[in-house]
Amino acid sequence: MDNHGDAQLLGPAEIRRLADKLGVTPTKKLGQNFVHDPNTVRRIVAAADITADDHVVEIGPGLGSLTLALMETAGRVTAVEIDKRLAAELPATAEWRAPGLADKLTIVGQDALKVGPEDVDKPTALVANLPYNVSVPVLLHFLEIFPSITRVLVMVQAEVADRLAADPGSKVYGVPSVKASFYGDVRRAGSIGKHVFWPAPNIDSGLVRIDRHPDPRWDMAARTEIFPLIDAAFAQRRKTLRAALGGHYGSPAAAEEALRAAGIDPQLRGERLSVEDFVHLSGNEVRA
């Protein structure tokens, strides 16, 4: 099979035709905005450096705009779709627009937050236009349960993209920034305007790329000790770490002792700490 076979990507007319056929009205509840611009989906696939060696997992494929572009390039594509009507139509769309590539596609019809390792066979990349309302929880869930994912390229709300890629000390640096950087190097990979979607959202979108640490500098299993610290440090952003972590350690004095032992000033706020600082604070080792 030609891994670079042709797929006829979906434009505005095809998107409307599919939506009408299925009786689909995009809903805010599911965070649905369908991409109708072929150049945008090809740009996303290129930004993810997808090759024929990749098994890509896509979350929320919707009507299949990005799915078809992924099928052109990847070896395999698994699409996770919670909406039963959309999930049922995807194989037909693949046959209609990319008949030579349709056997590359597997559909998993369930809630992305409930997907487990048994549902998707060792994906190497996550590429998705993530539903706005669950983008960060879904992203972190997939990074946690699929260590085989080495690259992530997701489209999210611009402000979420800024938060994910923020550095310590930035106003928008917070829980998503630290947790994403626990798994890999995070960066903004571009901006996407409103006009490529139907319906057009009120806000711009951003692309975020994550490259998983090939040789992690800390124990991934320590996540269960590190993530509660991150949550506590940012629960009340204006508080010093001594105060914010008082509940976690049992008292502000105990928090201060732990912070000093990790070489961290108790008077700092959570936004000053890097992921390495949180690893140290949890009592885990950061390797060079």
Rank of each mutant, 00 (worst) to 15 (best):
R242G: 12
A128M: 02
V134C: 04
S170V: 04
L245I: 12
P252D: 05
I44A: 02
A262I: 09
L273D: 06
K171I: 07
A189T: 03
V77I: 11
R209P: 01
I230M: 09
L130P: 10
Y249P: 05
A232Q: 14
T51A: 07
P266C: 07
L139H: 07
G247E: 12
I82V: 14
A79T: 13
N39F: 07
N39Y: 09
I145R: 15
I192F: 01
F34Q: 05
E256A: 15
L30P: 02
T124R: 09
T78I: 07
A235I: 07
P123Q: 10
G246W: 03
G100T: 08
V134R: 13
E276H: 15
V77R: 10
K29L: 07
F278N: 07
D167Y: 01
V41I: 11
I15P: 00
T93E: 00
A112I: 05
P266L: 04
G169I: 12
E58T: 12
V108A: 13
V24I: 15
A253W: 01
D111C: 08
R17Q: 12
D219F: 04
G283F: 02
G190N: 06
I15T: 05
V160A: 13
R85I: 05
G263T: 11
D49S: 15
L113N: 10
A46C: 01
D167V: 13
L164I: 02
L113M: 15
D111Q: 06
E276D: 15
N33V: 04
K171W: 00
L113S: 05
R42L: 10
P38Y: 08
Q8E: 10
I15N: 00
D6N: 10
A200N: 06
I210L: 13
A235Q: 09
P199W: 08
R217P: 12
K239W: 02
P199S: 09
G75S: 03
D103F: 06
K29V: 05
R260G: 10
A112D: 04
H195W: 03
K194Y: 00
T25Y: 03
I192V: 15
R260N: 15
P91Y: 04
R272D: 10
G31E: 00
E81S: 08
N284C: 12
R163P: 08
A243S: 14
T224W: 00
W198E: 02
A161V: 12
I59M: 04
R151D: 15
R151K: 14
H248A: 13
Q110S: 11
L63E: 04
T67K: 01
E271G: 03
T67D: 00
L18T: 13
Y183T: 05
R269A: 06
A254N: 14
E81L: 04
I44G: 01
E159H: 02
L9R: 00
W218I: 14
V57Q: 02
T124P: 14
D119H: 12
G62Q: 09
K114D: 14
F278C: 11
L22D: 08
V286M: 15
D6A: 13
K104F: 05
P147Q: 13
I264S: 11
I107A: 06
S251N: 07
A47P: 09
T51G: 14
G169Y: 05
N284R: 15
K114H: 11
K171P: 14
R16F: 00
I230P: 03
G11I: 03
P61E: 01
V108I: 13
A243G: 03
P176D: 05
Y183D: 05
A74V: 09
D219G: 11
